[in-house]
Design a binder for these strands. Structure first.
Lengths: 328, 328
DNA sequence: CTGAAAGCGCTAACAA
DNA sequence: TTGTTAGCGCTTTCAG
C-alpha cells in the first residue's frame, strides 16, 4: 500500500492539514516545518492521490478528445498537438473514437461524465443537439476542432471555403483552364460544402467553367480518390488540374494517374488538402493546401482550458508547394 | 450540481446502501424496491461518480498507452486496436507520448500513478529499470507491445528475426541474388538487431553474400529511407532486391528510385515491413511483411486486463503481396 | 503558524 | 431485505 498524507503527517509530527497546505503551496506554516515535511515526503516517496483530490475539487485535470477514427493521418496529427499542449499544462488526455456513431458517442459521453473530465475536444463531426446537451449537463468545457455548430461554442478551424478558393486560384494562376475537383462525402456540411463552394467560386471569378460534372465525390479516403479520379477523367477528358479535398484522395488520384501512364505534373496537375504525412511521402511529393493540424490541436487545448478566453480561432491555411503542380 | 446517490436514496425512500447494491448488481433487495429505485434514477438522470467509486475500489477503469510518437502510422494503428478493445471492456485510455525521453516518461509515470491507472501498455521502447520500478511501485499491471524485456513481463509482438528471415527468403525465392537491406536505427536491440539478424541468416542459408555493406542504416523514417537507398545503390550497384525495416523507409526508397528513373519492380524489387497505411498508398502498392498492428493493440489490452493470463503472445507475421516485388 | 473535524460521493461491513 | 456507519485520501473551514 502506498503512503498517504496521514502517514507523512504522522512521521513529520504535524497534522494532515499542514501537509496539504505545503503540498498545495498555500500559506500557513513556517519554513522550518515546510523543510521537515518535504524531507519526509522525499524519504517516504509519498505521492498524492489525484483521485481523492478530484473527489473534493471536482477537477480531474483530464481532457477527452472525440474523433471519428484514431488511425487517421489527419486526426493523429491533431491529436499529437493536443497531447503535447495538454502535457505541458499538466493534463491527461483520453481518446474516444466515435466512429461517427451516435450510440457509441453517447456511451463515451456518459463515461466521460462519470469520470468527471474537465474538458472535451470534439473533432471533425457535427455536434448534435443530443451531444451538446449531454456535455452541457456534465459541466465540462467544450471546443470544436475542424467543425463548428449553431450553438455558441468556440471552435478552431481553417476557413475551408477560402482555402479551397485559394487552392483553386493557385491552379488557375499556373495557367490551367480546365479544372476538376475530387471532393469528399457529398452533402457533408462541414468538410465538403464549403470546399466545393470555394472551388466553384474561384472558377466563376476567373471566368472559367464550373459545371457540376467537374466535381467527383468520394469519401476523403485513398481508394475513393482513385475511383473519383477515374470518373473525372471520363467526364472531363481534357482536365488539366485537379483540386482534391484531402491528401489521401490526392494520393489515390496520383496512383491512378501513374497506372494510366498520365504524367503528373506534366499532363495533369494535382493539389491536395491538409498537408498530412501522406503529402510528403507521395510521389511526386504532393503540393497541398496545408491546415496547421498540430497547432490546431494545441490551440484547442488552450481554449478548452480557458487560457484563451473561449474565443473561436480561424487559423490560416497555407500553400505548400511541392511537385505535383506544373506551369502551363 | 449533479445528483448524488444520497439524493436518489432520499427520493426513493431507501438508504444509499440499497441504491449502491442495486447499481452494482449485488443481492439484497426486493424486485419492488429495485424497480422503484431505478425509476427514480431515470427520473433524476442520476449518474454515478466514478471518482468517488475509484477512491474506494482503487480501480479507475483507466489504461494508459506510452508510445514514442502519436502521429506515427505504426503507433496509431496499434492505438486504434487498444482503444477499441478497451472501449469494449469498459475502460478509458490515456495517451502518453514519451518522445523516447526518460524525463518525460518518468513524469508521465508519476501522473499515471497519481491518477491510479489500472494498467499500462508500453510500446516500441526499451523498458529501463527506472521505468520498471516506477510501474511496479504504483501497482499497475503492465504489458509490452512490440518490445520485450529481461524482466518477466508479458509482451505482444511479432518474431522479428523470423519475419525478416521470411521476407528475405521471399525475395530469394523470387529469383533475386544480390540483396540489400534498409535497416532502422543502428544498434536498436528491439527493432533493428533481430531484423538484421534474420536478413543475414536468410542470405547465409541460401548461400548468398551477406556482407555488412549490403545494409544501410536509417531511422525508420521516410527521408532516411531515401537516403539509405541512395547509399545502398552506391555500395551495391547491382542490387536486385531490398528488404526495408519499415514501410516508411520502403516508401522513401521508392521515392528515390522513381526520381532516378529506376523501375520498381522491373529493375529493383522492394519489400517493406509493418503493413501500415503507407503501404497501400504507395506507388506501386508496396509488398510488405505485415505485423497485425490492430490485433496487437487489442491483445495488449486483453493481457493487461488479465483476461489472458498474463501470457506473452508472439503473433504471426504475414506476407502481403502487392506490386513492388518482381520475379527474376 | 497549526490542528481538529467535517465532508467530497461512494462501498462494504455489520446490524437489525 | 434493509439501514447504519465507518472509512477511501484529501481539502478546507474554523478554532486556537
Amino acid at each position: 500500500m502506498a503512503y498517504t498524507m496521514k502517514d507523512v503527517a504522522k512521521r513529520a509530527g504535524v497534522s494532515v492539514a499542514t501537509v496539504s497546505r505545503i503540498l498545495n503551496g498555500l500559506s500557513g506554516y513556517s519554513e522550518e516545518t515546510k523543510k521537515r515535511v518535504n524531507q519526509v515526503i522525499d524519504e517516504m516517496g509519498y505521492q498524492p492521490n489525484a483521485i481523492a483530490r478530484g473527489l473534493i475539487s471536482k477537477k480531474t485535470r483530464t481532457l477527452a478528445v472525440l474523433l471519428p477514427e484514431v488511425s487517421d493521418l489527419f486526426a493523429s496529427e491533431v491529436l499529437a498537438g493536443v497531447e503535447e499542449e495538454a502535457h505541458e499544462k499538466g493534463y491527461s488526455v483520453i481518446i474516444c473514437k466515435t466512429a461517427k456513431n451516435g450510440v457509441r458517442t453517447m456511451k463515451y459521453l456518459q463515461t466521460l461524465r462519470e469520470n468527471q473530465v474537465d474538458g472535451i475536444i470534439f473533432m471533425s463531426e457535427t455536434l448534435t443537439k443530443e451531444y451538446y446537451e449531454a456535455i452541457r449537463k456534465m459541466g465540462a468545457s467544450l471546443v470544436l476542432v475542424s467543425t463548428r455548430s449553431d450553438y455558441d461554442i468556440p471552435y478552431v478551424k481553417v476557413d475551408d471555403r477560402q482555402a479551397a478558393y485559394d487552392a483553386t486560384s493557385y491552379l488557375v494562376e499556373k495557367g490551367h483552364r480546365s479544372l476538376g475537383m475530387l471532393s469528399g462525402t457529398e452533402g457533408d456540411l462541414i468538410a465538403t460544402v464549403p470546399r466545393v463552394a470555394g472551388f466553384k467560386e474561384a472558377l466563376c471569378d476567373h471566368g472559367l467553367p464550373a459545371e457540376e460534372h467537374r466535381i467527383a465525390y468520394g469519401d476523403f479516403g485513398f481508394s475513393s480518390g482513385a475511383l473519383a479520379m477515374e470518373r473525372l477523367l471520363r467526364r472531363v477528358p481534357d482536365v488539366e488540374a485537379v483540386f482534391c479535398a484531402s491528401d489521401e484522395m490526392a494520393v489515390g488520384a496520383l496512383s491512378l494517374l501513374h497506372r494510366k501512364g498520365i504524367k503528373v505534373p506534366g499532363e495533369i496537375s494535382i493539389i491536395g488538402y491538409d498537408n498530412t504525412r501522406a503529402a510528403e511521402m507521395a510521389f511526386p511529393p504532393l503540393t497541398t493546401m496545408a491546415q496547421p493540424l498540430y497547432q490546431m490541436g494545441k490551440k484547442a487545448v488552450d481554449i478548452v482550458l480557458g487560457h484563451r478566453s473561449a474565443e473561436s480561432l480561424l487559423l490560416s491555411h497555407q500553400m505548400v508547394e511541392r511537385e505535383t503542380v506544373g506551369q502551363r
